[in-house]
């Protein structure tokens, strides 16, 4: 039984990854090879022409790449910091009205961007009019809604809630303050959840397209995802190289953090 499942899971995972392999293999093909009808898997030779063209003619690609790193990195860090504090308040400290806040937070995650786009736009405009803060057309227009998205709070709250109370009570008796309990006791136990948050938030914001098209007018300020869309529509012969480089950061983050998804939780002697 175990062997059958093992084979099944391995085969299934290969099936899932086929389009990604296809992208990588196609990134070594010449425009002539790409133009052939039907699926083309194996390049005739490993041709680096797409990457070369990307570096020489589309050097802007790498500037967009850095913009995306900046935007996505800020959002991930912001969500972790805000998320840990808020989740601790919602799951462990509780306060008058915490359930109402929780329901509102869940509600706002569930609304698709088409719904929040207009409200966000109006706020940014108001900021500019009254406080003279320029947010529209800068990266801030993507970073702010990303950082204050309640996604991370809800995720961490779900994982934090049934950490044993005794652990926290014991630390309190030892005289630890809340910040200390949070960093020394709660965080180490939440590693798998924090890793899940990092990878999921990274993916969502790395792939951002529609919000960027609304909030940012200057083409140079767009994130990489939008630029890649333009390559897809305009310079398809280098698309696969662009897409391959686009996938790499997420793969690296995943490989680096994967170990947290195989460590079990052992709470020594608390039960």
């Amino acid at each position: 039984m175990k062997k059958v499942l093992w084979v099944g899971v391995v085969l299934l995972s290969v099936l899932y990854a086929l389009p990604a392999f296809y992208t990588i293999l196609n990134s070594f093909m010449t425009p002539a090879e790409l133009a052939v009808d039907g699926l083309h898997w194996i390049p005739q030779e490993f041709n680096l022409q797409q990457y070369y063209t990307l570096v020489t003619d589309k050097a802007a690609y790498f500037r967009y790449f850095l913009s995306s790193v900046k935007i996505t990195g800020s959002i991930v860090i912001g969500q972790i910091v805000l998320g840990i504090c808020a989740a601790y308040a919602l799951a462990k400290l509780r306060f008058p009205g915490s359930d109402v806040v929780l329901i509102m937070y869940i509600l706002i995650i569930l609304l698709p961007y088409q719904v929040t786009l207009v409200p966000n736009y109006l706020v940014f405009e108001a900021f500019e009019r009254t406080l003279n803060l320029t947010i529209l057309d800068t990266h801030q227009a993507l970073i702010l809604p990303g950082v204050f998205s309640t996604f991370g709070i809800f995720l961490l709250r779900q994982f934090m809630r049934d950490l044993p109370k005794e652990l926290i009570e014991a630390a309190k008796i030892d005289g630890a303050g809340h910040l200390r309990i949070l960093t020394k006791i709660v965080l180490p136990l939440l590693k798998p959840a924090i890793f899940a948050l990092v990878i999921l938030t990274f993916i969502d914001n790395w792939n951002i397209v529609d919000q960027a098209l609304v909030f940012i007018d200057t083409p140079e300020n767009q994130p990489l995802s939008v630029f890649l869309r333009m390559i897809y529509e305009g310079d398809f012969q280098v698309f696969y190289a662009g897409a391959t480089l686009y996938i790499i950061p997420a793969v690296i983050i995943f490989i680096k953090g994967e170990k947290y998804l195989s460590e079990g939780l052992v709470i020594g002697g608390s039960k």
């Binding site: 995972s13 990854a17 990604a20 196609n26």
Partner: peptide, 23 residues
């Protein structure tokens, strides 16, 4: 299971919509 299994199953969320359309 081999380490690549999780990565492979997660790969589809990493790739851009253009790749899906191209494939």
């Amino acid at each position: 299971t081999p380490g690549f299994v999780k990565l492979f199953i997660i790969l589809p969320m990493f790739i851009p919509s253009g790749t899906v359309a191209g494939f």
